[in-house]
Amino acid sequence: KLIGILDLANIGYRNIDARALITGFQFLQAYYPERLAKFYILSMPWFFVSAWKMISLFLEKATLEKVVIVSSQDERKTFIKEIGEETLPEEYGGRAKLIA
């Protein structure tokens, strides 16, 4: 199982393609069920909230339960703790280097 982190800090309003996201999620949950441990969404901009509400209507309950939208300070602390500071890159509050 893997943990997904989606950083939306640099996304723009024009880049939102809800249809592509729905297709992507549906593909992954149909062909790779149970491969996702958790999916964290960071820095979700306000204009993405309504898009996410629509996208989530098309996702399975089991998938949605794994998605965590990190917005508050408490959620951020839990996110860092669950990934582990050793693994999490510095820009997300950990101590690791981000190496492709």
Binding site: L2, I3, G4, D7, A9, N15, D17, L88, A100
Partner: peptide
């Protein structure tokens, strides 16, 4: 998924790989 940068950090605290997707103007 045409994201700007995709990273795979291995392993996390409990041994699970971590996939990091940084979205930008090419997303999704």
């Amino acid at each position: 998924l045409k994201a700007k940068k995709i990273y795979l950090q291995v392993p996390s605290k409990n041994g699970q790989p971590v996939l990091i997707i940084q979205a930008n103007k090419h997303f999704p």
